[in-house]
C-alpha cells in the first residue's frame, strides 16, 4: 500500500476540522462566573440565615437542638430569658449568642431539619472564602436576617 497525500494527509485534516466546525454551532456551556451566575438547584445548601417572623421577632428560641444535631459540632448557642422590656422572640427564651464555625461546617442541613421553629435555614450564597481563620466565626449579628 503506497503513501497517498490526499488520502493520508489532506482528508483526515479536513474531516477533523469538520468535527470542530460542526461543534461551533452548539450552545456555549461556560458560565462566565463573576459576571453571570449559574442557576442554583432549589435545595442547594450554603450560607446559614437566622430568619424572623413577619412581626420582626426572631424565630430562634435558643433550644440548642441545631447544635445537638450538628455532626461537625460547629454551632454554639447560648440562650437567655426574654423579658417584657427586652423581647427578642415570642417564647420564653431567645438565643443570646449564636455562633457557627463556617470552616467546620459541612453544610449538611441537619440544623435546618432539627430546628422546631424553622429559624435556621441554609440559603444559596456560596461566596464564603476569606483570608483569615478568625473571619469564619459567624456571629448572631452576621447570621440574623435584617428586619424587613
Amino acid at each position: 500500500m503506497s503513501f497517498d497525500v490526499f488520502r493520508d494527509v489532506a482528508k483526515p485534516i479536513v474531516s477533523g476540522f469538520g468535527i470542530t466546525a460542526r461543534r461551533l454551532k452548539a450552545d456555549k456551556v461556560t458560565v462566565q462566573y463573576p459576571e453571570e451566575r449559574r442557576e442554583q438547584f432549589p435545595r442547594t445548601r450554603w450560607r446559614h440565615v437566622l430568619t424572623r417572623y413577619d412581626s420582626g421577632l426572631e424565630r430562634c428560641i435558643g433550644c440548642s437542638l441545631c447544635a445537638g444535631a450538628c455532626p461537625a459540632k460547629c454551632i454554639y448557642v447560648e440562650a437567655a430569658e426574654n423579658t417584657d422590656e427586652a423581647r427578642f422572640s415570642p417564647g420564653e427564651r431567645y438565643s443570646h449568642r449564636y455562633e457557627i464555625n463556617m470552616l467546620r461546617c459541612i453544610f449538611c442541613g441537619y440544623c435546618q431539619d432539627a430546628c422546631p421553629t424553622g429559624a435556621i435555614v441554609l440559603r444559596q450564597d456560596f461566596e464564603l472564602a476569606n483570608y483569615e481563620r478568625e473571619d469564619f466565626i459567624y456571629t448572631k449579628e452576621m447570621l440574623l436576617e435584617p428586619i424587613r
Binding site: 462566573y33 463573576p34 450554603w46 449538611c108 456560596f126 472564602a129 476569606n130 483570608y131 481563620r133
Partner: peptide
C-alpha cells in the same frame, strides 16, 4: 494558608471565587 474556602465540598464557583480573591 493564604485563603480558606468553606464547603463540603465547595462548589466550583466557590473555588473560583477564592481564586479571584
Amino acid at each position: 494558608v493564604d485563603i480558606y474556602v468553606p464547603g463540603c465540598p465547595p462548589s466550583p464557583d466557590a473555588l473560583m471565587y477564592a481564586v479571584i480573591k
